[in-house]
Nucleic acid binder design. Structure first.
Lengths: 233, 233
DNA sequence: TAGGCATAAAGTGCATGCACTTGCCTCGCC
DNA sequence: GGCGAGGCAAGTGCATGCACTTTATGCCTA
């Protein structure tokens, strides 16, 4: 896969670098602790070191990479403890979004949520993991938007993206699709009833369960040895 | 005033710039919408444009400044709506911290919280606004730490700092000190009882009240005097 | 052989320069 | 007198170079 910048056109070079690197971190292609050498990245993306530097600075500002002065940058290492704290935060943030959604969603938003949710039942029957995963993302985004609070929305999206690398395996567990759908159903039902407390609780439980599934995964996927990842092209 | 970098020594030059600029934004010395000219800032702090640029990039990544490609950076403008959403988020985040604190604070943390809180009663009697403000910050920080969740801690601190410019006037309202103390007292009492629900509610109410006080202030303090920006044609 | 110091190599941090973009102003045109 | 094109000034975006820090290496000494 060629990461040349022609693939990621829009915005300034720095923006492209931010997106390119963030994407590789969030998707797990770059792994926690991995070295981010300015010169190598610059060569890899065919730009000078300056935009790479700025991108690394911005990514470190949002916590995706760690920078040690004069000693280079690495993909942020999340301890088990920090990971747990992020999952717990995520559960609380989703609970807030669900509560607010129950109180504030417009009629159109409620209908759209319910419709999509019902449609997704089919994906469960078919066992269409990929499609369901896509729907799932959309489902949660609806909750975030439905809260009608931009700041909560931003915090939630940011937290979600930082958790992305650790959630990939959740659907590998057998029966997970149907379970997820039933949990969604509780949330949707509560929202349609405008029952904020129930919606919040259902959303929190939903994330907590995902969290447990993922924690297992994270623990079972320890730090990678320092293989020649630089020669990976 | 001398903003020379000798005053802000630690870390790399970029770090110093980030802190210096963020500080001026958070304290309200730089106002929303105000232009952030790279060359001027560089001259002002006696560094080259490069670290200033990187600092602006990082600040824009965390939302404190807005950057329009090729058109410079300005201090982030927060709409009334966005401001309200931040206050609401703050109330929810504080509620979470208070709930978790009620459940998780160690004995030492509880004792320290209660002691400091009781001690602060004296500041109220004396009407020592400055000192009380300092204590108040410390009080809330204790709640954030007491939650024993680093991610929630970080989100809360970040949100709080973004709200800082809009909270300054809250203690100007007469009787505010005593009112604040009584609200704190509700929180502390609930935490000492390990009553998570009550602590959460008390904390949420506390912030909501501050929010209302500040909203008045924000509304009464409209756009910045620096004109010539609206005259875009 | 182990420890420590000097030195080299690698890589980061910042300054500077130049190309390019944007907004403004002026001048010519209608 | 209004309007648009062209040019100018200001300012941003990126590349490059050099100084400095860190780390690796080797040599010397005990």
């Amino acid at each position: 896969m060629s990461g040349k910048r022609s693939l990621v056109r829009s915005g300034t070079t720095v923006d492209q670098m931010v997106r390119a690197i963030a994407d590789r971190i969030v998707t797990g292609y770059l792994r926690p602790g991995e070295r981010l050498d300015e010169a190598s990245l610059a060569a890899r993306f065919d730009v000078s070191r300056t935009p790479v530097r700025e991108a690394l600075g911005q990514l470190s500002a949002i916590g995706l990479v760690e920078r040690r002065p004069n000693r280079g940058a690495i993909v942020a290492v999340v301890t088990q403890e920090h990971l747990a704290s992020m999952f717990e935060s995520m559960a609380e943030l989703e609970a807030i979004c669900a509560r607010f959604s129950a109180e504030r969603m417009t009629g159109a938003e409620r209908r759209a949520l319910e419709m999509e949710h019902q449609a997704s039942a089919r994906l469960v029957q078919l066992g269409a993991e990929e499609d369901y995963e896509y729907f799932n993302t959309e489902f949660h985004s609806r909750l975030y938007r439905g809260a009608h609070n931009t700041h909560i929305h931003d915090l939630t999206v940011a937290t979600r993206s930082r958790l992305a690398p650790f959630r990939r395996a959740q659907f590998m567990l057998p029966g997970r699709l149907a379970k997820s759908w039933r949990e969604h159903d509780l949330i949707v039902t509560a929202i349609m009833r405008a029952d904020a407390a129930a919606a919040g609780k259902a959303a929190r439980d939903h994330v907590s369960i995902v969290s447990e599934a993922s924690a297992v995964f994270a623990a079972a996927d320890p730090m990678e040895p320092k293989v020649s990842r630089s020669a990976r092209r």
